[in-house]
Nucleic acid binder design. Structure first.
Lengths: 335, 335
DNA sequence: TTGTAAGCGTTATCAG
DNA sequence: CTGATAACGCTTACAA
């Protein structure tokens, strides 16, 4: 049996309320009594029982995090940040890996609610009605990562995907590339699908290029998918002079395919990635990519959430964090 | 205010104990009453409050997981398994990222204890006295991953590193390689340091080669470190015909260095990795590596832990899971 | 088989 | 400033 507040009270010769007051610093307690209590607490090595505490305060000091795939390095890095700053505020993380399945996302949404989490961080590839309904009815503090959720009246944080794709495409056009293929995350209903498409289009406009929707493919975050898309391109003899993938690993998939078919990168085809995850530097050729402040995205998201939990948050908005185009060896100028 | 057991009791016209009995299936309840209660529960959408429950049962349904680095793909995959099977048993995971620092490991060990976790999964690069003391005195169920902890009278699970290194080295000797450099995890005090060294030695004995301790380097799980080690080798003009790294990413670091210095892999030097993480297949040349049943390691560990929590575990032992040498393109036979 | 009531360890209200 | 005491929502003897 471990030591309770009662033991402390008894040994210090005060009431349990007094002990409670000193540990919570909630009401004035005379100095000598306070010191006496503190001393006893140390002697006994007393630690308040968080469960009992939660029962009365209705606060669990728990935050739920639903993500589609821990083994995605991008998400891992995000988690790193979330975990770290949460601990700073004395919150713990309950991790839910949904594998991107709507079913388990729904399951976790409810699970977390019954687990009494005080708020949730949500990361999903597709946003559905089920989600919306849940968020609307639960009124639980939620912040969305990597998706603009202002339509749901939720705060969210990400990089500006429209601008990032636009910049990358522009850079390639400037380098003299005539035709660029975009392998984006997914369809219009998927995360950032629309803004990536729009950014790509914008670059075409800016550089007076004709835009053809057929040059946009859906990679669905999958290396293999990107590989296959590339293979098709090769078979159809439609290999472009440059490829932009909205994920580093899809870029790697594309390069592997090209190289496996004897096409040199970047000599014959330029390929760019997105996110600047570990592999971008590890892989050869090193990837030209969009560096994202992944850690910061996670950190901002969790801070935002905690503010919301504490009722300090004003309005719900989307936060864009700055990205960076980093040029390495997988792209080249044709000029 | 959410619905409590009282609301259910009132609406079903029974006592709260009866309700408790039906939700826990703990004592016989007559069929008609049970049905009535179940119906009311559904109507009201009642969910037992886990906090209140924990307070009386002293069970938190929480398991603490301390790991050194979430963004390590190996650990991410492990986490995947842990999270998944834990949910199966209705346990939640509290994630603690120690960055391998002894200080935060210690911090988390205690934090988890006060958070009332029912057991812990522990993954560390170095095992120290602090850890031992904690485990001895707390008598909390703990299972260690990727480290033989039988000396601490703790269960643990991993692949047999001695054999794996030995097999890899043997394969290379068979291929006609004369000198092999081993870039292992770390020093003797580090995880698997000794067994990797021993396995390497054994292979030398088996093949009648002279063993020189100088051919063993400590990579400390770092890509850069491996890169530098390789660079030194090149500068000293001591490039071996084969390199075994005990981590895929260290292998990649080594290959990158070699290639950056104009040395071809596998034509001039063979390089092998360990773990068979994503990058092993993604990278070019694809890595020859030791495939580890990472998911299974995680799954076995968490199951073991839950058994221990339930008092079903017999003795504390180390479990070896089978590994596999998978040959890809980063090594070649000299014959 | 069912109900009553005593906790579980805290915080919070209200007197004093 | 300090102390009783009533919650918090649930499980579990103990009675009935």
């Amino acid at each position: 049996m471990s030591i309770t507040i009662k033991d402390v009270a008894r040994k210090a010769n005060v009431s349990i309320s007094t002990v409670s007051r000193v540990i919570n610093d909630s009401k004035p307690v005379s100095d000598d009594i306070k010191m006496r209590v503190v001393k006893v607490i140390e002697e006994l090595g007393y630690k308040p029982n968080p469960v009992a505490r939660s029962l009365v305060t209705k606060k669990s000091r728990l935050i739920g995090v639903i993500i589609p795939d821990i083994s995605d390095p991008y998400i891992a890095e995000l988690l790193n940040a979330i975990e770290e700053v949460a601990k700073t505020y004395d919150y713990d993380i309950i991790l839910c890996n949904s594998y991107g399945s709507l079913e388990s996302e729904e399951h976790y949404l409810h699970l977390l609610q019954t687990k009494q989490v005080e708020g949730m961080l949500f990361l999903t590839y597709k946003l559905r009605t089920v989600h919306k309904n849940f968020f609307e009815s639960s009124k639980m503090p939620v912040v969305m990562i990597n998706r603009d959720a202002s339509e749901l009246n939720l705060s969210s944080v990400s990089v500006n995907n429209h601008d990032a794709v636009c910049e990358m495409a522009s850079k390639l056009f400037e380098y003299g590339h005539k035709d660029i293929v975009l392998i984006r995350n997914g369809k219009d209903s998927d995360v950032f699908g629309p803004s990536q498409m729009a950014g790509f289009k914008k670059a075409h406009e800016d550089y007076g290029k004709e835009f053809d929707e057929k040059t946009v493919y859906n990679g669905g975050f999958k290396v293999d998918k990107a590989y296959k898309i590339c293979e098709e391109l090769i078979e159809k003899n439609e290999v472009p002079s440059a490829i932009i993938a909205t994920t580093d690993s899809m870029a790697v998939g594309a390069i592997n395919c090209l190289v496996d078919h004897g096409i040199k990168v970047p000599e014959e085809v330029s390929v760019a990635g997105f996110y600047d995850t570990n592999i971008a530097e590890l892989y050869r050729p090193q990837l030209t990519t969009i560096h994202q402040p992944i850690y910061d995205i996670g950190a901002v998201a969790i801070r935002l959430l905690i503010k919301q939990i504490n009722g300090e948050a004003k309005e719900r908005t989307h936060f864009f964090l700055p990205h960076d185009l980093v040029e390495r060896d997988s792209t080249r100028s044709l000029k």
